[in-house]
């Protein structure tokens, strides 16, 4: 929230002139019949995506020359808002002249880009980016029908955010690499979740298989596990600085058990580690004397010095021992 968000942007003002033009006068709306295609010796493929009950639906018509798999003509019909109609129109245009194999590489990002007035300015506001996704989905479906394969087979990765086409793999990598802790950060780094917002969490515009909230939580958990594992390995190799708090306490206890405690017990006393505070410059180890040590004159001088120097020698120069 800041000054520019106070009254927000008017939805339609954020559409490019091209979106407006194509909504007002789509170039490729219409149908191709089986007979028309057959007359020209071509094959007709008609694919639907979406439904009126979903809020948007598109029907794509491809007339394909079977000799070279080239899409010689294409039309669309669409139930949808202005951006859905404009996206469908541009999608159809991008298909014409391509082979089916080439067409299936057209993504929603290409469709949105083709709707821009200039390369720098998005054609639609973020929440409308979703409209172009259907164009991509229906192409995959048509290609699947023509080639006799499952349309999902064209997708090489798991796409979590369809609007920005961000894969699960990318998301996990970016979260780990940049130590991301919030959805807002993920959107800043990858654009995922910045458009129709369906992929952020359940209950949005449409149901998804993967949600950013789950991916973030699971990836953070993986990161923690990796960290622990690394720390555990460091613990066995004796790198005190990279140990977790629990490992540090264990290491200190181990050193005390081995080098100090027997002498204290011999004098009728003992000690315990109360807490460790890692302040950066110093690692303060708070201890409490038990039995005869408690109140013993050397407990704040000689004995303390001995404990501290042993820990410094065995574990870290930064250690200070503070009796309480």
């Amino acid at each position: 929230m800041a000054k520019n968000d106070l009254i927000g942007e008017s939805l339609w003002d954020a559409y490019s002139d091209k979106v407006t033009r194509l909504m007002n006068n789509p170039q490729h709306q219409g149908e191709i019949s089986e007979e028309e295609a057959a007359e020209r010796g071509n094959k007709l493929i008609v694919a639907d995506f979406g439904a009126e009950s979903c809020g948007d639906a598109v029907r794509l018509y491809w007339e394909i020359d079977p000799k070279d798999d080239k899409i010689v003509n294409s039309k669309f019909r669409s139930f949808g808002c202005g951006t859905a109609i404009a996206s469908s129109d541009v999608m159809t245009e991008l298909c014409i002249g391509k082979t089916v194999q080439e067409a299936v590489k057209i993504t929603n990002i290409d469709v949105e880009f083709a709707l821009r007035d200039n390369p720098e300015t998005p054609a639609v506001p973020p929440q409308k980016m979703h409209c172009s996704v259907m164009a991509y989905d229906v192409i995959k479906k048509a290609a699947g029908l023509y080639l006799g394969v499952d349309s999902e087979s064209f997708e090489e990765e798991i796409i979590v955010c369809e609007c920005a086409r961000v894969s699960l793999k990318t998301l996990k990598e970016v979260i780990k690499l940049n130590d991301l802790k919030s959805i807002e950060q993920i959107t800043d780094y990858t654009k995922a979740g910045g458009f129709c917002k369906s992929c952020i969490k359940p209950g949005g515009h449409e149901e998804r298989e993967w949600y950013l909230v789950d991916i973030l939580r699971d990836t953070r958990r993986e990161m923690d596990e990796e960290k622990m594992k690394a720390a555990a390995e460091a613990g066995t190799s004796g790198d005190f600085a990279t140990m977790t708090l629990v490992q540090k306490i264990k290491a200190i206890d181990a050193v005390i058990d081995e080098n100090v405690r027997q002498f204290l017990i011999m004098d009728g006393g003992n000690m315990e580690v109360i807490d460790i505070k890692d302040g950066g410059d110093y690692i303060d180890v708070y201890i409490r004397y038990i039995g005869a040590c408690n109140g013993c004159a050397s407990s704040t001088t000689g004995t303390l010095f001995a404990i501290e120097s042993t820990l410094k020698e065995k574990l870290s120069d930064k250690i200070r021992v503070l009796p309480i």
Binding site: L44, A47, L145
Partner: peptide, 12 residues
């Protein structure tokens, strides 16, 4: 006239 709901040619 643009709407898929009123299209005549059925899907493959």
């Amino acid at each position: 006239a643009i709407s898929s709901s009123y299209a005549l040619v059925k899907p493959t």
